[in-house]
Amino acid sequence: MTPSAPAIVAANHLSKWYGQVIGLNDVTLSVPPGITGLLGPNGAGKSTLMKLITGQLKPSQGEITVLGESIWRNPALYFRMGFCPEQDAFYERMTGLEWVTALVRLNGVDERQATEMARRALETVDLTDAAGKKIGAYSKGMRQRVKMAQTLAHDPDLFILDEPLAGMDPIARRKTIRLIKEWGRAGKSVIVSSHILHEIESMTANILLINQGRILAEGNVHQIRELIDEHPHTVYIKADQTRALARQFLADDGVLSLTFEDEAVVVQTGRPDAFYARLTALAASGEFGTIHEVTSPDDNLQAVFQYLVKS
């Protein structure tokens, strides 16, 4: 990134309210090219900001520009943007290939070319084998990946990813993080939201901290890294052999507690980096069957934000 590089997203006294509820409050920011992490607990205003950036919402006050242009009612900008929304919503009866093809066709591409682009996108997210399966039959992780496929299929310059790793298994997570970093290296820009610092940190050092509709801080992730380490990190894991997997964690120094909820194990760890690395290695070994879901509640970050707001 060069110091003079124009902002990919710029907001000037941007506010958004829903009736009496404030979603975003007088935000002024300038997002440089490259990868930027938008970090905040649930309800902090991340999705509102994402929806303003993607032109789904109109600012109540202030203005926002994306790639130098106003985004509201400016559909031509979507040629250059790819959006992966947070919600788990699909045309369930379509196959992954049909769905991605149909969306790519809306970019003005003919059927044959759209199918080819969709196939490539599905290959990128490792869904080639499941391309012909109905989305309704996809696992949570596959659904996340097919959303990523529709985001990248038309080769946009700017990716807006709202909680893209939620629900992915460790291997898909690692691949997606690698993919995002590759986009950054290829000169694309990415704005990625999460409520998990660890995830954001693995993609970029450049972050925007958001809470209660305000930007708390912009800049380097390492500055708040020490704070998060003081708070235990909770991870929820669903696997074929949850109990056998949990036994592997008992020996880890960083693991503070283990509890079982339905068919999942909830782990509290003081060293999330080491824990995720171990989890990925265990998933890759296949020793404990498939790891279906890895999620992290936002309590971790909430604790840090409470600390930040108080101090």
Binding site: P33, R80, R93, R105, L106, G108, G187
Partner: peptide
């Protein structure tokens, strides 16, 4: 940053036809 592309937004008619394609089966 990549320079602005020179894409023209598809016409209402062309877009309507594609949404029709997408929606009919559903």
């Amino acid at each position: 940053m990549t320079p602005p592309a020179t894409h023209a937004t598809p016409t209402v008619l062309a877009s309507t036809a594609r949404i029709f394609d997408l929606s009919l089966g559903q």
